[in-house]
Each structure stands twice: as C-alpha cells, then as structure tokens.
Computed example of a mutant assay.
Amino acid sequence: MTSPYLSPIERLWFYTLRILCGLILLFLILPVLVIIPLSFNSGSFLVYPLQGFSLHWYQDFFGSAEWMRALRNSVIIAPAATVVAMIFGTLAAIGLTRGDFPGKSLVMALVISPMVVPVVIIGVASYLFFAPLGMGNSFLSLIVVHAVLGVPFVIITVSATLQGFNHNLVRAAASLGASPLTTFRRVTLPLIAPGVISGALFAFATSFDEVVVTLFLAGPEQATLPRQMFSGIRENLSPTIAAAATLLIVFSVLLLLVLEWLRGRGEKLRTVAVQ
C-alpha cells in the first residue's frame, strides 16, 4: 500500500515504477510460459494457434527409450554431483569464514571462479584433462565437473548463513566437553542447514540443467536430459521437446518454492539463535 503522505508526483512515480517492474518481469517470463501450451498441442509442429488438446507428446516422452535414458542419466549425475558439491562447498565455506590466513581472498576467488569462467572454457579444459586418462565418456568425469560447477553456490549460501552465526554456541559446546566433530554435527550443522540445503538445491539445478560441459564429456550412453533436448532441436524439432521443457519448468518452480521455504526457516533459526 502507498503512504497517504505521498505527494501526487511521488504517488505517480510509485505506480509507474511498479508497472515498469511488472512489464520487465512479464518480458522475462513470457518466453518460458509460451512453451507450456505447445506441449499440449495435438499438432506435430510448434506453432500457434493450437490445433487441439492432447497428451500425446507426454506419452511419447515417457514411452521413448532415448528420453528415459537421458532422464535416468540426469537423475544419476545431478544428485551425485550435488552431494559432492555440498560436502566440499560446506567445508570450504566454514574454513574461509572462520580462518584468517594469507591469500584468503585469492583462495576465495579461485573456488568461486567456475561461476565467472565461461562454461565452454570449462568444458574444453575438462575434456583435455579427462580424455588422456580415458575418462572422456564416463559418469565419473561428468559428476566431478558438475560438482565443480556447483561448489561456488554452496560456498556463497553457506558463507552468507555463517555471517549471522553465533560463535558463542560453539564455545559453549566446547566448554561442556564436546569434541569438534560433535559440536559441528549437533550445533553448527543444524543452524547452517538452511544455507547448506539452499546451496545444494542451486548445485542440483546447475547440474541438472547443464549442457555445454556434457557436450564435451558425455557419450551417447551418458547423454543427459538437456543434451537430449539440444540434440532434438538440432535434428528433429518435435513437440516432445516442449513436453520435456514443461516438466523442467515445473521442476524448477518446485525448487524455487523449496528455496523460499528454506529462506524463511533460516531467518527464524537465526532469530532464535540471537535471542
């Protein structure tokens, strides 16, 4: 609601700004929303107007061996990469937040560099590294590189959570005889859990949606869902791709809802810890 003390010009500027933000948001989200009705089109082409309502393309998606193999590969690679990224990212965030050593800024820049370096460079470098080892077409190489791409998200979210962490709780646990491992497991980890889980969800989304590195490292048997979509766009533009894209959109929305819930939970935990 607007304040009753705003002048007419300020009120006009307030509503203009809100309308402008709404139009920008609509411009950004409209291309995503356009693809959803096409996945229910009974026609064989991705065109408007729709020729009718049908679930044929979803049946084609779930009945195709290639699409199911790609989905299975994504379900294998993304969770594995998420676990690796969550473990190393959490430990790195704790060390960088609590530690004070020479070159700390340089180390921080290095660990978050995968967010800055173009993905195609990471893909080429990964291929040149794994190919001589005979791991160019393997799940292990994909999991390792996807984890590297996800680690920065975990570090950032966990570091942000640790900024409001009450270190007196750790000192209290130590004074009561708790070992460092017990203190971490029963005091630190429960309090930073929203940040850890949020970072893990970002890492999962990054891995699940990644296609550039997969093009360099994956063979036909390791093709993920995004790569299968990319191949389908190049070879045969089928509405099945629209069905796959719609499923990914729904999945992404669910992730965002979980992240918002975790953000609210993190705020409550920090408030309780301060009190």
Rank of each mutant, 00 (worst) to 15 (best):
M1D: 10
T2V: 14
T2K: 12
S3W: 06
P4A: 11
I9M: 12
R11F: 12
W13T: 15
W13G: 15
F14P: 08
Y15C: 06
G22K: 12
I24C: 15
L25V: 14
L26K: 12
F27I: 11
P31Q: 05
L33T: 02
V34K: 04
I35D: 02
P37V: 04
L38G: 03
S44V: 12
L46H: 08
L46F: 08
V47E: 12
L50C: 05
F53K: 06
W57D: 05
W57S: 09
Y58V: 12
Y58P: 05
F62A: 05
G63N: 04
R69S: 11
A70T: 06
A70F: 05
V75H: 05
I77Q: 04
I77K: 02
T82H: 07
V84I: 15
A85N: 09
M86F: 10
T90Q: 08
T90N: 07
T90K: 06
A92I: 15
A93K: 04
A93R: 01
I94T: 00
L96I: 04
R98P: 00
G99I: 00
K104N: 10
L106A: 15
A109R: 06
L110R: 06
I112A: 01
S113F: 08
P118D: 06
P118A: 11
I121K: 08
I121P: 05
I121M: 12
I121N: 06
S126D: 06
F130K: 01
G134T: 04
S141A: 14
I143R: 04
V144N: 08
H146F: 05
V148E: 00
V148R: 00
G150N: 01
G150L: 02
G150W: 03
I155E: 05
V158A: 00
V158D: 00
L162M: 14
Q163N: 15
G164C: 09
F165W: 01
H167P: 05
N168K: 11
L169C: 03
S175Y: 05
L176P: 01
G177Q: 08
S179V: 11
P180C: 09
P180M: 03
L181Y: 12
T182C: 06
V187T: 11
V187A: 03
T188Y: 03
L189R: 10
I192W: 02
G195Y: 00
G195R: 02
V196A: 03
I197A: 01
G199E: 02
G199N: 01
F208I: 10
D209E: 09
V213E: 01
V213A: 00
T214L: 09
F216C: 07
E221P: 01
Q222L: 10
Q222N: 11
A223M: 15
L225I: 13
Q228G: 11
F230R: 06
G232P: 02
R234W: 02
E235V: 15
N236R: 13
N236Q: 14
L237R: 13
P239T: 07
T240W: 02
L247R: 04
L247N: 03
L248M: 15
L248G: 09
I249Q: 02
V250G: 14
V253C: 13
L254C: 14
L255K: 11
L255E: 12
L256E: 11
V258W: 07
V258I: 15
W261M: 15
L262A: 08
G264T: 08
R265G: 02
L269S: 12
R270E: 14
